[in-house]
Simulated assay, not measured.
Amino acid sequence: MIKKTSPAKSGLLLGFLFGLIMVLEFVIMYVIGMKSLVNSSAGLIVNSANYLILPLLFIFLGCNNYKNNINNGNITLSECLKVGISITFVASIIYAAFNVIFNIVFPDFVNEMIEISKEAMISKTPNLTVEQLEAGMTMIKKFMNPFIVFPVTLAMYSFFGLIYSLIIGAFVKTKNLNSNI
């Protein structure tokens, strides 16, 4: 009996690589200085890469790898979903765990990000009232809590993985010649 690799298992390595890339981006941005990158094109590029370009790329690579190297040139939409969600879920676990550990090791980072966010809010909407500013700061502080960051990151990247896998699956799926459907 031939042992077949599951679609979800086939995406683990790519998910690990995606997670490592996001961690490296974060470390580089931290070393360069987050404050200088918040309202710059570099920050926009990194966000676009993490939420759009890299997930699409890794899901596409994962689906094509499963299709061509594991499943004899066939892949269904459901297999694309399993590959894509596993890639983004593994990446999000790595990134969220790193983020929580980083915030524990460097507690001043959270305060620095809150201050950067406050300055950005004031510069973008200078007519904010004190109450509106405090409400915004309270919300930001809540979302920097590790017990919130971790599950929200997992859910968000898994949701993006679902959407992107549906899109990519529509293009790379093949009709299974062995089924009656």
Score class of each variant (00 low, 15 high):
Ile2Met: 10
Ile2Trp: 06
Pro7Ala: 05
Lys9Asn: 10
Leu13Asp: 01
Phe16Leu: 15
Leu17Gly: 10
Phe18Gly: 00
Leu20Gly: 15
Ile21Trp: 06
Ile21Val: 15
Leu24His: 00
Glu25Lys: 03
Val27His: 02
Ile28Cys: 07
Tyr30Ala: 14
Lys35Arg: 14
Ser36Val: 12
Ser36Gly: 13
Val38Asn: 12
Val38Asp: 11
Asn39Cys: 01
Ser40Trp: 04
Ser40Thr: 05
Gly43Tyr: 09
Gly43Lys: 03
Val46Ser: 03
Val46His: 01
Val46Asn: 07
Asn47Ser: 15
Asn47Met: 14
Asn47Glu: 11
Ala49His: 04
Asn50Leu: 09
Leu52Ala: 10
Ile53Phe: 15
Leu56Met: 15
Leu57Cys: 10
Phe58Tyr: 09
Leu61Gln: 06
Lys67His: 03
Asn69Met: 10
Asn69Thr: 13
Asn72Pro: 04
Gly73Phe: 10
Gly73Lys: 05
Ile75Arg: 00
Thr76Arg: 01
Leu77Val: 10
Ser78Pro: 02
Glu79Ser: 08
Glu79Asn: 04
Val83Asp: 00
Gly84Cys: 02
Thr88Glu: 10
Thr88Cys: 14
Phe89Val: 04
Phe89His: 01
Val90Met: 10
Ser92His: 08
Ala96Glu: 04
Ala97Asp: 05
Val100Cys: 08
Phe102Trp: 05
Ile104Val: 15
Phe106Tyr: 14
Phe106Thr: 13
Phe109Ser: 13
Val110Tyr: 06
Asn111Cys: 00
Met113Val: 11
Met113Asn: 14
Ile114Thr: 12
Glu115Asn: 11
Ile116Tyr: 12
Ser117Phe: 09
Lys118His: 06
Glu119Asn: 12
Ile122Asn: 09
Thr125Asp: 12
Asn127Met: 12
Leu128Met: 12
Thr129Gly: 12
Val130Met: 11
Glu131Met: 09
Gln132Thr: 08
Ala135Leu: 13
Met137Ser: 05
Met137Ile: 15
Thr138Ala: 13
Thr138Val: 09
Met144Ala: 10
Met144Trp: 07
Asn145Thr: 11
Phe147Lys: 02
Ile148Met: 07
Val152Gln: 09
Leu154Tyr: 04
Tyr157Gly: 02
Phe160His: 03
Gly161Met: 03
Ile163Cys: 04
Ile167Asp: 02
Ile168Val: 15
Phe171Cys: 08
Thr174Asn: 04
Asn176Thr: 08
Asn178Asp: 13
Ile181Trp: 14
